[in-house]
Amino acid sequence: MAKGKDVRVRVFLECTLCVRTSGNKKSLGISRYITQKNRHNTPSRVELRKFCPYCYKHTLHGEIKK
C-alpha cells in the first residue's frame, strides 16, 4: 500500500489565537496538538476546541500543513 493513499492521516492542530498574537510579549509560544482524521469522511480542514497552555484557556485549534 502506498504511503500517500492511507485513509487515516496525521494532522497538526495549531492555536489560532497564539498565531494572531505571536508578536505580543505575553505569548510564550504556539500550542500544537497531533491527531488523526479520516481523509474520506472529512476532506476539509479540521478545527477543534483544545486547551492552550500559553493562553490558559480553551481556544480554537485549526489544522495546519506540515
Rank of each mutant, 00 (worst) to 15 (best):
I34A: 06
V9F: 03
K50T: 01
F12A: 07
I30Q: 03
H61F: 14
N24Q: 09
I34Y: 02
K66M: 06
N24K: 06
E63H: 06
N41I: 11
G29I: 06
Q36F: 03
K66W: 11
D6I: 09
H61L: 07
A2K: 10
H58N: 10
S31A: 13
S27G: 08
K3D: 12
D6T: 08
E14T: 07
S27M: 10
K3T: 06
N41F: 03
S44L: 12
C18P: 01
S44M: 08
P53I: 09
T35I: 07
E47T: 14
S22N: 05
A2S: 12
G62N: 09
V11W: 01
C18S: 07
V7C: 10
Y54L: 08
K26W: 03
T16Q: 07
K5M: 05
G23I: 09
V7K: 13
L60E: 10
G62E: 10
R39M: 11
K57P: 01
R49W: 04
H58A: 06
K57C: 15
K3S: 10
V19T: 15
V7G: 03
P43Q: 09
R32S: 04
N41H: 11
Y33Q: 04
N38L: 03
R10A: 08
E47K: 14
S27V: 15
K3A: 10
H61N: 09
R39T: 13
N41S: 14
H58D: 07
C55P: 00
C55W: 01
C52D: 05
R8H: 06
R45L: 13
Y56F: 15
V7R: 15
K50G: 02
N38S: 05
F51S: 03
P53V: 03
K26N: 11
S44Q: 14
V46D: 06
G23E: 11
F51R: 07
K57A: 15
T35V: 09
C18F: 01
M1V: 15
N38E: 03
T35P: 01
E14F: 02
Q36A: 03
L60T: 15
H58W: 09
K37D: 01
R39Y: 02
T16R: 07
R45E: 14
K3I: 08
G29T: 04
G62K: 13
C52E: 05
V46Y: 01
G4N: 14
G23F: 12
L28Q: 15
T59I: 06
Q36M: 07
T42Q: 08
R32W: 02
K26H: 06
F51L: 13
K66E: 13
D6V: 14
T59K: 12
R20C: 08
S22Q: 13
T42S: 13
N24L: 05
V19W: 05
H58R: 11
S22R: 08
Y54C: 04
N38F: 04
L17M: 02
C18L: 05
S31C: 14
I34R: 03
T59H: 11
L17P: 00
S27F: 07
T35S: 09
L48V: 05
E47C: 11
T42W: 02
K37Q: 01
C18E: 03
I30M: 04
